[in-house]
Every structure is written in structure tokens, then in C-alpha cells.
Design a protein around this nucleic acid. Structure first.
Lengths: 205, 205
DNA sequence: TAGATTGTTAATCGATTAACAATC
DNA sequence: TAGATTGTTAATCGATTAACAATC
């Protein structure tokens, strides 16, 4: 793989391709084409080919792409050919929901730590997770060398939590709090904001 | 307002601006500038001005934007100067979490209907919502003229549910199922997929 | 071989940024 | 008035699409 810089927007599409490929595989398909894959995800065939070709030649002229092979390659590229331990901070409805979430494991992630600051919640068990005191968070995450965390606390506490996570060595943060958090350059943040998506759509109503 | 077509990507940024403005207002600020707002949301000042100017002249040279005024205008544009009733389909962890979600009301939405197909869940009460049988869904939504729905069922059932929602007159769907659903042109769909966001970030680890 | 589909280059399209006159 | 910041135009940048030779 050449080390030219791949645009972020292309990386963001790879998980969508992977999701579609998983679906095709579940339906028993062996090969697919840029056309078919594009139809699944609502993207042009040309763009699918261009995106994939950034990383190598994974298809065959006349035949298309072997679904299993392409999936494996995309997983390697995204570094999800392994399982990442994830810390969840905030055990309200969202945090609890995520700790149950079946979809993570098959897609490369496993919730292994849960934190909250509410004494009534600390020590309780959700699935196989025991909720720990947030005051232990930095030391526990550091010790386990966890790199991925999810923030599911109220907006007012999100920045403070983010700073602790950074101190603990976290490099990827999925933030459910409806506030933009400031972190060092080498830490990635993505946002989940269902209300923002709804607001986007009402424009067209 | 001229009726030129506004790019979808601009519409998608308006909720972010609104979120930042709400935050500024909560902190007691009265006015802001394209520079300040841009810093909040991580977008250039030029782009903020260009986006906003698509809809009118809401700022003052030398002074900037009145936060309250701009918020009101953006809410009008996004049609969230009212409260939209929302139907939630699927009362698993995600659906339950959403029915509790405090963030909706102040941002233009209210969960008013909940549906599931599990006899053990039907009839139970979550907050002030009674879970109804999914077989009643089309008629209930039609009767109440609800336009916005959230799909929180397993991927295998999502397409079927989407078709019923369309039949019931729903025009905006927020889909938590990890599958792309096919709906008529006049129905909007947005996706929430936390694992996809995590996968995106691991690339950079 | 004939048909299909890739990988890639060039052309097009659209979005972002820079610059600045207008004006509060 | 002097300073600040908007709204807008033109320039730049980057992403998408179209086209096609290569080849399975």
C-alpha cells in the first residue's frame, strides 16, 4: 500500500460498504460488482471502484469483487480485523442501551468497561459489566490500554470527561452529548445526535 | 426567500449552528460573529456567512448576529418552530432509550407513539407512552397524521416496517437498523450507526 | 471469442476559501 | 470617524462522474 493520504470522506464510506457486503454474504452471495454494491449503498459504481482502488486491486475485470475477500481487505484497512475494547462513560439510558448493543461485537468492538458518577448505579451489573466509579476511570483505562471510548453523559459534563479520557490514553471518542468537545489533534471524535438528523429532515417536510 | 435550491449539505449544517447558538445563549451571550460561531462548530467563518446568507440577511456589519434572532430564523427555516410528534417503532433498548430522551422536546420533537410486536411489551407503559401492537400502527399513525418516525427494530424487519410507515403517511424516517431501506422519493431517511462511526475512527489508530 | 467489469485518467461538477466593498 | 464584520463575488480546491483501455 502506498502511503498517499486517503481522503477522510472515503474512509467514512468504507464502513457502509462493509455493512452492505455483510448483508450480501448473509444472503449467500459470493461475488458482487461495483454496480450492485453501489445500488445497495446509493453511490455510483464509478465512485465505488475509485474508493476501493485507493487501497489496492481487489476486483477482477469481467467478474467483479469476491465478497468475502473484499470484506477481509476492508476490515484490515479499517483495523477491525481484531476486537477493540471500548469504555462507556455514563450509564443513563444511552449508555445502558449501548452496553447491551449486539451489533458491536461482529463489527469489531466490545464494551468492556462502564463508568458512572451516581452512587446508586456504581457497583450494579449490566449484562456482564460492573459499573465503576468514574473516579477510577483514568487509572483503569490506562492500565488496560483501552483506546476507544463512548461518552454518554450530559452535555455539561462532556468536556470534563473528554479530558480525563485523553489523559487515560483514549484516541477515539464517540460522543453522544450534544456539545462539541475540544481534544488534542491526535484524538478523533465523532458525534451521534439523533435530534440533528431529525431537524435536517423536517426542512423537507 | 427566493426559491433557489439550497444544497442538502448546507441544510445538514443548520442543526449544528442551532446547537452552538443554544449553548451560547445558555451562557448568557447576546450576539456572536461568523468567526466565533465557526470556532464552535469547527467550520470557517466564510462558510458560516455563506450558509446563513442563503436564507436572508440575518447579521449586521460590524456587529455580527443576534443569537436569539438567528436561532429563531434557523428554526423557522428547518420548520422546527413547532413541535413534531414522533412515532417510535421497536421498544428494545434503543427505542426505550429514545422514548426517555430529554433532548428531543427542546429541539422540536416529542415521542407520542410507541410500537412493538412482542406481546410481553405491548400494553406496558414507558414514561407516559403506552406501547401499542404494531398491527395497529398504520391506522394509528394515519389517523394522528404523524409525519416523523424512528425505526429501532432488528435489520431483518426494517424494510417491512419502513413500508408500513410509508403507507401510514410518514415522510421522515430516522433508521437505527443497520440496513439501507428503500422508500419512495418523497420520503427522507437518515441513518444512525454507532459502529460505523467507531470503524471510521479506528482507521486512524 | 464475446461479454462483462475493473482500474484509472480526464472532464465535470460542486463546495470551500479568499478577498473586499458595503455598512453598521 | 475608525474598527469590525457582514454579504457576495471570484478563485481555488477537491470530489464525483464519464469514458475507455485493459483484461478476466
Amino acid at each position: 500500500m502506498t502511503t498517499k493520504k486517503i481522503p477522510d470522506i472515503i474512509i467514512g464510506r468504507l464502513p457502509l460498504y462493509l455493512r452492505a457486503l455483510a448483508r450480501m454474504e448473509a444472503e449467500g452471495a459470493i461475488v458482487t460488482s461495483s454496480k450492485a454494491l453501489g445500488d445497495w449503498v446509493g453511490i455510483s459504481a464509478a465512485q465505488i471502484r475509485k474508493d476501493i482502488s485507493q487501497f489496492g486491486e481487489f476486483g477482477k475485470q469481467g467478474t467483479g469483487y469476491n465478497i468475502k475477500f473484499l470484506s477481509e481487505k476492508l476490515k484490515e484497512i479499517l483495523k477491525i480485523d481484531r476486537v477493540w475494547d471500548v469504555a462507556i462513560v455514563g450509564m443513563g439510558d444511552i449508555g445502558r442501551g449501548l452496553s447491551h448493543y449486539e451489533g458491536f461485537l461482529e463489527r469489531g468492538f466490545r464494551a468492556t468497561l462502564a463508568f458512572d458518577n451516581n452512587p446508586e448505579v456504581i457497583g450494579s451489573t449490566i449484562r456482564n459489566l460492573t459499573v465503576q466509579d468514574i473516579s477510577e476511570m483514568v487509572s483503569t483505562i490506562s492500565k488496560k490500554e483501552i483506546k476507544v471510548a463512548i461518552i454518554a453523559v450530559p452535555a455539561d459534563n462532556a468536556q470534563e470527561v473528554a479530558e480525563k479520557l485523553v489523559k487515560a490514553g483514549i484516541k477515539s471518542i464517540l460522543n453522544y452529548a450534544t456539545i462539541i468537545i475540544n481534544v488534542p489533534e491526535d484524538v478523533r471524535v465523532q458525534y451521534i445526535d439523533p435530534a440533528a438528523h431529525l431537524q435536517w429532515m423536517t426542512y423537507y417536510l
